[in-house]
Amino acid sequence: MDADSPPAPQKKTRTHESCHRFSKLLLISFIIFLLLLKMLFSVALITLSKKYSQPLDEKEIIRELNYIELECTKQHSLLKVWSCCLNDWKPFSSHCYFISTDAASWRESEEKCSSMGAHLMVIHSQEEQDFITKILDPDAAYFIGLSGAGHQQWRWVDQTPYNESAMFWHPGEPSSDNEKCVIVNHRDSGWGWNDVPCSGKQESVCQMKKIYL
């Protein structure tokens, strides 16, 4: 029994050496993998640097933006910032505007705007009022994002304050507590606001913030 005991430690030693060689091989493989990964990252970084260190072709940029249905203008030539609106939307200041010629109630019109990531138009300045009325049909009427709870308590759909110094009511309007939604339309005196029943069918104007790239 004592004569047969020496082989056991030799087997254990061989197993330990095999594990050590495997661990060393695994470590070397991992180091090689990290070096390859670092090389690939460096090549990618150099490629990107070369691409973006050169002036971009504006015609090519515009072509790509149109492909994804955006119409953009350069906002800042040094920072290369572009302000964009979706195709068929009109840009003004920091917003985009869409004229819907599908007649619908005020609520239906707001839901349609919301489905496009927008809301019915909110008007806070004479410049904004003049901008939109120049591109509207004077023979039509358009819902905007102003509605009331009666007794002349008006509120904008985006919850911004109702500024009484920037109101564009037609003479004699608003005229009824039963007419709780607002349109912009044209009369002999020019463009202005008029309160109407919310259930009436009118065209509308949607508004969203510009997209910056």
Results as ranks from 00 to 15, higher is better:
N163W: 06
F30W: 07
G190L: 10
S165Y: 08
H170N: 12
P174N: 14
L146I: 11
Q75Y: 12
V157E: 11
C72D: 04
L213E: 04
F41C: 02
S165K: 13
K51M: 08
S53D: 12
F98R: 07
A141V: 01
C96N: 01
D188G: 06
K201L: 15
E64K: 14
S114D: 04
K134A: 15
V157G: 00
L36I: 13
H76P: 00
K209G: 13
L27P: 00
I132M: 13
L40A: 05
M167Q: 15
L37D: 07
G148M: 04
P7D: 04
A3R: 10
S199V: 15
R21V: 05
W156H: 09
T73Y: 11
D2Y: 10
G172H: 10
H95Y: 13
V157H: 05
Q10A: 08
S49T: 05
I28L: 15
G190F: 11
R187A: 07
R63F: 10
S94I: 13
L25H: 10
L36E: 04
L40E: 07
E127T: 09
K11W: 00
E64F: 05
S189W: 13
D57N: 15
A103T: 10
K24I: 03
L78E: 13
G172K: 11
V43K: 03
D102W: 03
C85V: 14
G192C: 09
H151E: 12
A3T: 13
P171S: 14
V196Q: 09
Q152P: 00
P174Q: 11
F143V: 02
T13H: 04
H186A: 13
F98D: 03
L86V: 05
Q159F: 13
D88M: 06
C206P: 09
F30V: 12
